Amino acid sequence: MEFRDVVRRRRMVRRYSEEPVDPTVVDRMLEHAQRAPNAGFTQGWAFLVLDTPEDLARFWESTGAEPDTHNAWLDGMRTAPVVIVPLTSKDAYLERYAEADKGWTDRRDDRWPVPYWYVDAGMAALLILQTAVDEGLGACFFGIPAQHTDAFRTAFGIPADHRPVGAITVGHRATDTGAKGSPARRERRQDLVHRGRWGTTVSP
């Protein structure tokens, strides 16, 4: 598939068919994710792959979706045969930039203009989403509710220095792709590119 088609066809898919996902395709998603840009080649991310009925049930329950909780979004998302959870380690970045070749002698986090541990994990997540499209699959990135993060950590033994940045459902698209997302309710903005100075917008 042409790259421009991958970009244009990417959608958040919220309902999946019963067809299983080839594990080698999941491996390719993770291989591509680890090729994402990352500050200082820190590689401070990790990926939790859940692809058994038991692990998937534990994921949904630990993140606040009790078995008897039903709504269109949740009922669709729970049909996914694979969930990938990207995690990031702030400590890994602070340690990396305290090394001799980076020139900082401490682990202060106020040196960072933005928290690149989240930026890098987000770019890795996007590569997972794009690989799903290229492989003819559907995927959806969504957040783990803050009030359930600790329960998720406990359920899967996540170490204290790693934090989930969200989760990604993966599967074959169902004919009904699930609850409509925000793009169905909002127009695509045409005023986001500024050339030369702010306020000079150019339509795509």
Rank of each mutant, 00 (worst) to 15 (best):
N71F: 05
G138E: 00
V114A: 15
T131C: 13
A125Y: 01
W73E: 07
E66G: 14
L137F: 09
G76I: 01
G103C: 08
E135F: 14
D120I: 07
I128W: 09
T88L: 02
M123V: 05
N71Y: 04
P81S: 02
A98F: 09
G76T: 03
W60C: 07
P67E: 05
W104Q: 09
A92M: 04
G64M: 00
A121Q: 15
A121E: 11
K102T: 13
D120F: 03
R58W: 04
D75A: 08
T63H: 01
P115N: 09
D68V: 14
Q130F: 13
A139F: 10
V83E: 00
A124K: 03
D75C: 11
D110M: 10
S62H: 02
D101W: 06
G76F: 00
L74C: 12
D106F: 05
P115M: 07
D75T: 10
D91E: 05
P115R: 13
W104S: 10
D134M: 15
A100M: 09
R96E: 03
A139Y: 07
S62P: 03
T63F: 01
W73C: 09
D55E: 03
A92E: 01
A98D: 03
E61I: 08
L87W: 00
E61C: 12
A124F: 15
R111Q: 11
N71W: 00
V114R: 15
T63L: 04
V83K: 06
R108W: 11
L74M: 14
V114C: 14
R78N: 02
P53R: 12
L137Y: 04
L94H: 07
W73L: 15
P53M: 11
A121W: 13
V83S: 05
S89H: 05
S62A: 14
D134P: 06
G64V: 04
V133D: 08
D109C: 13
L126N: 14
L129N: 03
L126W: 08
W117G: 08
R96Y: 07
E135C: 13
M77T: 13
Y118M: 13
E66M: 13
A72Q: 08
W73K: 12
G76R: 03
D75E: 09
T105R: 12
Y116R: 06
I84Q: 01
D101N: 07
A100L: 11
Q130I: 09
G76M: 06
W117P: 02
A139S: 15
V114E: 14
I128T: 01
W112R: 05
M123F: 08
P115Y: 05
P86H: 03
H70C: 10
G122C: 12
E95W: 12
K102E: 04
R96T: 06
T88R: 04
P53A: 11
D109Y: 10
W73G: 03
Y97W: 14
A57C: 03
V83W: 03
T131I: 06
R78E: 00
R58Y: 06
W60S: 10
A72D: 08
P115A: 05
Y118K: 13
D68Y: 07
T69I: 14
A80Y: 00
A124E: 11
A124I: 11
Y116Q: 09
A65N: 06
A57K: 10
Y118I: 14
Y118E: 12
Y97G: 03
R96G: 02
V133I: 12
G136R: 10
V83F: 06
A100R: 05
R107K: 15
L56E: 01
E99W: 00
F59E: 04
P81W: 01
G103S: 05
M77L: 15
D106E: 02
